[in-house]
Design a protein around this nucleic acid. Sequence first.
DNA 1: GAGGCATACTATCAGTCCGATATATAAAAG
DNA 2: CTTTTATATATCGGACTGATAGTATGCCTC
Lengths: 180, 180
Amino acid sequence: MDVKTVCLGILTDGAASGYDLKKHFESTFGHFFAAGYGSIYPALSSLADEGLVTCEHVPQEGKPDRKVYAITDSGKAFLLEALKDPAPGHKVRSDFLATMCFAHLMPAEQIETVLKSRLEDVDNWLKLIAKAESCCFDEWPPGMKFVAGFGRAMSLAMKQYVEENGHMLTDSGQQKAAHG
Amino acid sequence: MDVKTVCLGILTDGAASGYDLKKHFESTFGHFFAAGYGSIYPALSSLADEGLVTCEHVPQEGKPDRKVYAITDSGKAFLLEALKDPAPGHKVRSDFLATMCFAHLMPAEQIETVLKSRLEDVDNWLKLIAKAESCCFDEWPPGMKFVAGFGRAMSLAMKQYVEENGHMLTDSGQQKAAHG
DNA sequence: GAGGCATACTATCAGTCCGATATATAAAAG
DNA sequence: CTTTTATATATCGGACTGATAGTATGCCTC
């Protein structure tokens, strides 16, 4: 499942520009599938080349043309085929956990800063999910509701774990010993 | 935090070959920071070029030389500098959730296959974490214990959410309607 | 009314990473 | 006797990330 395929999926909900797609990624997909302009624009060009989407140029005053992309029948067929993967992956890439593995090499103060920033980050995700739900929940297909709930459940679990176990990293160790 | 930096961190625990590092990534780091040979070997070459690690060639009969890498003082300094990032990220890239967003385009049977495979995957992670703990828990620094517990907490939360909410995706919808 | 910032819209590029693949040997399993 | 598993190395194309860049409008503040 690459960015191209996800763009195609979003387009099943209506035509959109690259800019629109980016906002969609930020608001709804951000917590589990990030994509920036550097992925989206090449993806759309490539989809258009392959005939999976059409591109309509909408001139605007003073701004660059809006390029509005719409999915085609062969695009829909391609998407349904891509959705047949029986075991789609779920990967985590955590600089946070990689850093914490080496907590014994860090001063306690630095560790606390990192834990705090993680909790702030989680709160931002929770707010983002709540915001997305408050605006569109009733219109969402069941899948989007499932995914939003998933994001909330994982965020809450992370928050709870960090709050209850963060002390492991700063209690009793070289850090405290060096202190007293 | 790139693969290079994590390799450097692992080498603080003793000299190792690229092959050893790969096993380390699989057993302990796998659930939050995956890396394959395609990342590890170039990382080690580059670290050696920069003088952050040394490389000792150990000849072996019938097999290619073992190249054993050890961290240098400037390597340690580089690592401590890298660990100063106050807000290291934690990213999820989930083909699973991306697929579920479009569950309304999929037959119920396919959805159930996907959910089942996710639960199996979670169980594998749990087993992997338990195995790593059973062998090394007492020797681990606090950071590794924290990280293993984190992995378990998140895996259990995911399992629970999928088990309790998976029905949302197959109950009441085009799928059931088309059925009856 | 000048400066700064947000919003709207496009796009590219270097660096990095991922997955598959290739090569070679040997022991263990079937 | 053939396949699998383990030990070890390494490369390559394609994909993705994060930063950067350009251009125009409008809003707020000093």
